[in-house]
């Protein structure tokens, strides 16, 4: 068997793939956080809970309504997005113009409510969610066997990230969003319904988190706390990338996921903290983040 630095290559490729999958989730979640923060000036702590809600929505739709993976991929984000819209309309909206810390605290409280309630109802243990029949099995890539579902997750997340980026960079709605991120009052003074834009943006960001949750359901088990530890890592990713750039958030997510995977190969003890260590180093060298602007 061939080796690199004494590591068998299949193990190395396997960990890189796992890193790429984790990176897919970091990228999708930090993208949503960055879009929401850019426009609403709110750090959405509920993002992890919304990811969990997406996974649970898929699980519940399957268990109680017999609705399979593919429709859930659309339905779960819609449901979670709708809940998010209610949250924005009745709660977040009242905090605009105040210190952004209040938005963080509000969404932290909401995350506790969602996670606590789901743990109360469903217990802390994870629930298995089978991948759809079309995506089971593995593919022989020549240098390694890749489970098809994992390949699908990486491809789907790239597609989602690219789609979101195009939506923001190339469409009229995206132009409103970019402009309002710079100067919301002026955009509203041009006749754009900015309050509605804020609501939609928060709904879209939450739906993106929920979509990531559905994608994650067959890989990690569906559990009430699946989002809370992840969101803290994603915060670190966001600090590393800086929130000024959409593309920066995406790239940082994938790169850090792969670095984390590589750490698992070469120094497994540090794999759970490597992203935080990188964050600390970036703070020392480039406090504004790799793609950030000094605010």
């Amino acid at each position: 068997m061939s080796t690199i630095f004494g590591i068998p290559t299949p193990a190395l490729y396997g960990q890189i793939l796992i890193g790429l999958i984790n990176g897919s989730f970091y990228a999708m979640l930090s993208l949503g956080l960055a879009v929401i923060f850019g426009l609403l000036r709110v750090i959405n702590f509920t993002h992890g809970a919304q990811y969990m809600l997406g996974a649970f929505a898929a699980y519940l739709l399957l268990t109680y309504a017999g609705i399979s993976y593919w429709p859930s991929l659309v339905l779960a984000p819609l449901l979670v997005g709708a809940v998010a819209i209610v949250i924005e309309r009745f709660m977040l909206r009242r905090l605009y113009g105040l210190d952004p810390l209040y938005g963080l605290l509000l969404t932290f409280g909401l995350a506790l409510i969602f996670e606590g309630a789901f743990r109360h109802w469903f217990g802390a243990a994870g629930k298995p969610y089978a991948p759809p029949a079309q995506l089971t099995g593995a593919l022989n890539l020549g240098f390694m066997f890749m489970p098809i579902y994992r390949g699908w997750v990486v491809a789907a997340s790239l597609f989602v990230c690219l789609g979101t980026w195009l939506l923001i960079e190339k469409t009229r709605l995206g132009a409103y969003l970019r402009a309002a991120t710079e100067n919301a009052t002026l955009v509203q003074a041009f006749g754009v319904n900015v309050p509605l834009l804020l609501t939609l943006t928060y709904g879209l960001g939450a739906a993106l988190a929920a979509l990531a949750g559905v994608l994650a359901a067959p890989i990690y088990q569906v559990s009430p706390l699946m989002g809370s530890n992840l969101i803290i890592v994603v915060f670190a990713v966001v600090v590393v990338g800086g929130m000024g750039s959409i593309l920066g958030a995406i790239v940082t997510g994938y790169v850090l996921g792969v670095l984390e995977g590589l750490t698992k190969v070469f120094y497994p003890e540090a794999s759970s903290i490597v992203i935080f260590v990188i964050m600390a180093i970036v703070l020392l060298v480039r406090p504004a983040g790799l793609f950030g602007r000094e605010e």
Binding site: F37, I232, V277, M279, A280, A288
Partner: peptide, 28 residues
């Protein structure tokens, strides 16, 4: 020393991330 390099909301996220790192160290 690390956290005061950023302000406001970032300060909160950095302290959260570093304390999570410490929690992982305590676990191991």
């Amino acid at each position: 020393f690390l956290a005061i390099r950023r302000q406001g909301i970032y300060f909160a996220m950095i302290t959260l991330a570093l304390s999570q790192m410490f929690a992982f160290i305590c676990l191991q």
